[in-house]
Design a protein around this nucleic acid. Structure first.
Length: 809
DNA sequence: CGATTGTTTTTTTTT
DNA sequence: AAAACAATCG
């Protein structure tokens, strides 16, 4: 993460008509193979451009060609371009593609995520408002740890505040650019719970500042505050970025929207003069009135793929774009180059159920392709087995593993999939989930590094204080905090004075040793140090050896600690890798990179593995074959979203995003029963399933068939039958009868009810699919009685007696 | 202070 | 089913 090109590259951009430039970016090669709409999106020049890009319509191509065009024609220097992507992976891909088009590296281009770009700005400007460039970035776990302490100390838990709820509320406010002061003004003074929350918010903000730390939301919000409080600072960035491009604009929140608004403001003449005094290049940029006009803004998005409302994304940012930026040009990309017509028809049909959306119809000229395959498992494991078997069949048919993906709504669904995949020898990789950097032992090791980089970060210091165990308990910790308060020093500095606290000799020695270790390591980052600045891996190795963290894990009797030790060793390997890729990279650079890795960033195309990920992580990706699992009520749409306004529409968009990731083959699967919280529940097919025309789906086993009925029920699920649920079957103006959302549930609500069936070990039973078998054991009570059956040919199964298609013989 | 045992809660989605 | 948490004892 170097800042190459930031302070240079301010020379005059020479615009020469008809001059293709030396870098091969001439019009013809840039526009070859693009359709007319894409061409317009690439070549349009003006203050604002909105590209409404349906799924798979080639928007990345358009964006990269647009950037390459700007640079190739010498309309802009690379350093005048700021492109915002959704993930770091998308950013590096885009950079590679642009450089590929130009035939040369273009230093100084900023292509990054909102968060990375803001960190870069904040590190540079932190000194302006009371932070240092070594600030820590708190992830959600850190925020919650801090809030937990605050809530405990303020005894706010009696008002029902949990770290999670307070964190969610604070995050929401920050995304709306409300800070403690502004919120305190508008808050209801008479509500005691509100007062308690205000206290938490104030203390949280204070603690972050004292720790020289920003949380995720701060990264954006504080950058906006910075620009608003220091117009001179803002002017520098407004001057620098002449072309701003934002991808996935439908998922921007208010803070991100405001950031873009700030960056696209013109620089007034008096600030231009100040910039000039500082020796910055301005002359070629000013207009007749002496101001630098606002940067040109290109946004790309698709409101049908907006799936982040829960974290503040405001769909209006894109729907109101033309009002925000009068005179904006709008280009629509509707031709899809990714999926088969069958997949697109399913997607179109599903999304058309969302009202208040602009009509849009994706189409392709690449043919119908395979039908969508449907499957209903008896349990999550049965479903997973189907997926594993199908993956195996595809592999044999020549589809490489890395072009297949399995999606699910919640991370907890990975458990069943993993168990079966391991058993079936399907090589897989889980994107996101419990991330490497969220593991406790990794956070411990990272806390050592953070303490060295940013001693003000009390959270990190407290974390390592007694990790590994060195006899420093809560009582000692409290004493250290009190000592720091009394002497008006930081918690870290209190460690230096351990001998003044009158603690036991053992505890004092332990604290002193820790304090020295931190100092030794800090010296390794100091450029003044004659020994020179050491790479991050050396610092980490020194900290691990000095603290005994790794040894404690290796020598532990807990069998899991062996794996933890390996994880820590893996972290050492990561630091070495970092040093190789970033010569001269500092400790802070490393910590930044680690803080901002996203789930999709881990995707490595070269590994021959199937990718497992949530539907959210899947956004922006595509695969030849996609398995969309758990297509059930309460999962998608998720139970939690049902009561939220707009929740059902957002879940539908999520389902739509999942469908449109598939290039050639799409599998939709569900289960009749789903284990959660350790017990088994009956699951219903998702209402969205009926929004797909029945003829597009080839049911290998339909929900009806899985209920133990004959095959006719499979077609019935998706057929439109007048008179069924007729109270809702009101034809719309377009003559299309709206799908009857409750219908499938009525079908499955007629589940065979075996609750009266008494089974005892030794009984013989007959199952519709598994044939005959013998009951070995019956567990559970009432509606959740489970029969453990050894089938003669199908092997051992656990069945929920109430709904299993079995009869006693 | 730290280890062990028992109890409770957790599951939306993420930078 | 697993993890996080609280209580208890050495």
């Amino acid at each position: 993460m170097t800042d190459a090109g930031f302070s240079r590259g301010t020379g005059l951009p020479i615009v020469v008509d008809g001059d293709a430039g030396p870098c091969g970016g001439d019009d013809e090669s840039l526009l070859a193979g693009l359709n007319p709409q894409q061409r317009e999106a690439v070549t349009y020049r003006g203050p604002a451009l909105l590209i409404v890009a349906g799924a798979g319509s080639g928007k990345t191509r358009v964006l990269t060609h647009r950037i390459a065009g700007l640079i190739g024609s010498r309309e802009a220097w690379p350093s005048q371009i700021l492109a915002i992507t959704f993930t770091n992976k998308a950013a590096s891909e885009m950079r590679e593609r642009v450089e590929g088009l130009l035939g040369q590296a273009s230093e100084g281009m900023w292509i990054s995520t909102f968060h990375s770009a803001c960190v870069r700005i904040l590190r540079r400007e932190a000194k302006q408002f009371g932070f240092t460039e070594n600030f820590t970035i708190y992830d959600s776990g850190d925020s919650r740890a801090l809030l937990k302490r605050i809530i405990k100390e303020s005894e706010a838990d009696t008002f029902g505040f949990t770290p999670a709820s307070a964190s969610a509320k604070i995050s929401k406010l920050k995304n709306e650019l409300e800070d403690y002061e502004s919120y305190a003004r508008s808050a209801n003074r008479d509500d005691p719970a509100e007062q308690v929350f205000l206290q938490i918010f104030r203390e949280y903000s204070r603690a972050l500042r004292a720790a020289n730390a920003f949380d995720f939301d701060d990264l954006i919000a504080q950058t906006v505050y910075l620009f608003r409080a220091f117009p001179r600072v803002a002017a520098n960035y407004q001057r620098r970025f002449r072309h701003i491009l934002v991808d996935e604009y439908q998922d921007t929140n208010h803070a991100q929207y405001s950031l873009i608004r700030e960056l696209t403001k013109p620089v007034p003449p008096h600030l231009v003069a100040e910039l000039k005094i500082d020796g910055l290049y301005v002359d070629g940029l000013t207009d007749a009135a002496g101001e630098i006009p606002g940067a040109s803004l290109t946004v790309v998005g698709d409101s049908d793929q907006s799936i982040y409302a829960f974290r503040g994304a405001d769909i209006r940012n894109i729907t109101e774009f033309e009002n925000d930026y009068p005179g904006a040009r709008v280009v629509l990309l509707e031709q899809n180059y990714r999926s088969t017509q069958n997949i697109l028809s399913a997607a179109n049909s599903v999304i058309s159920n969302n009202f208040d959306r602009k009509a849009k119809n994706l189409w392709t000229d690449s043919g119908d392709g395979e039908k969508i395959v449907g499957y209903t498992g008896y349990s999550g494991h049965d479903e997973a087995q189907f997926v594993a078997d199908e993956i195996d069949a595809l592999r044999r048919a020549g589809v490489p593993y890395n072009s297949m993906a399995v999606f699910y709504r919640t991370n907890s669904q990975t458990r069943a999939l993993e168990e079966i995949f391991i058993r079936s020898a399907v090589p897989y990789r889980i994107m996101g989930g419990t991330k490497f950097y969220e593991r406790a032992e990794i956070k411990d090791a990272m806390a050592y590094l953070i303490t060295v980089a940013n001693p003000a970060d009390e959270l990190a210091v407290r974390r390592i204080l007694n990790t590994p165990k060195r006899g420093i308990g809560p009582a000692t910790e409290t004493q250290l905090r009190a000592f720091a308060d009394d002497n008006n020093i930081t918690f870290r500095d209190a460690l230096r004075s351990a001998s003044d606290l009158g603690l036991g000799p053992k505890v004092t020695a332990a604290i002193t040793r820790l304090s020295e270790l931190i100092d030794e390591s800090a010296a390794m980052t100091d450029p003044e140090n004659p020994a020179g600045v050491k790479p991050v891996s050396d610092i980490l190795t020194h900290l691990l050896a000095g603290s005994g963290l790794l040894d404690a894990l290796r020598n532990s009797r807990d069998p899991q600690d062996e794996a933890r030790a390996e994880n820590v060793e893996e972290l050492v390997a990561v630091t070495k890798e970092f040093a190789r890729n970033n010569p001269g990279g500092t400790l802070t650079d490393f910590l930044t990179e680690v803080s901002l890795v996203a789930a999709a960033d881990e995707l490595d195309d070269s590994t021959g593995t199937v990718s497992l990920m949530t539907l959210h992580t899947a956004k922006g990706l595509e695969f030849d074959a996609v398995f969309l699992t758990g297509v059930e009520e309460d999962l998608i749409p998720h139970r939690m979203s049902a009561n939220e306004p707009g929740g059902l529409a957002e879940e539908r968009r999520l389902f739509y995003v999942g469908i449109t990731r598939a290039r050639k083959r799409l599998y939709l699967s569900l289960a009749m029963t789903r284990a959660q919280f350790g017990d088994v529940n009956v699951a219903m097919p998702s209402r969205y399933l009926q929004e797909i025309p029945g003829e597009l789906i080839d049911w290998r086993r339909s929900p009806g068939a899985a209920n133990g009925r004959d095959g006719t029920m499979s077609r019935a699920l998706n057929a439109k039958r007048p008179g069924f649920g007729s109270d809702r079957a009101i034809a719309t103006a377009a003559g299309l009868s709206k799908p009857k959302t409750e219908w499938a549930n009525k079908v499955t609500a007629q589940v065979r009810d075996n609750s009266g069936l008494e089974l005892l070990p030794g009984d013989r039973v007959k199952h519709v699919d598994f044939g005959e078998g013998r009951v070995q054991e019956v567990t559970g009570e009432g509606a959740k009685r489970i029969a453990h059956v050894q089938f003669d040919s199908a092997g051992f199964k656990k069945l929920l007696i109430k709904i299993a298609p079995i009869e006693k013989l």
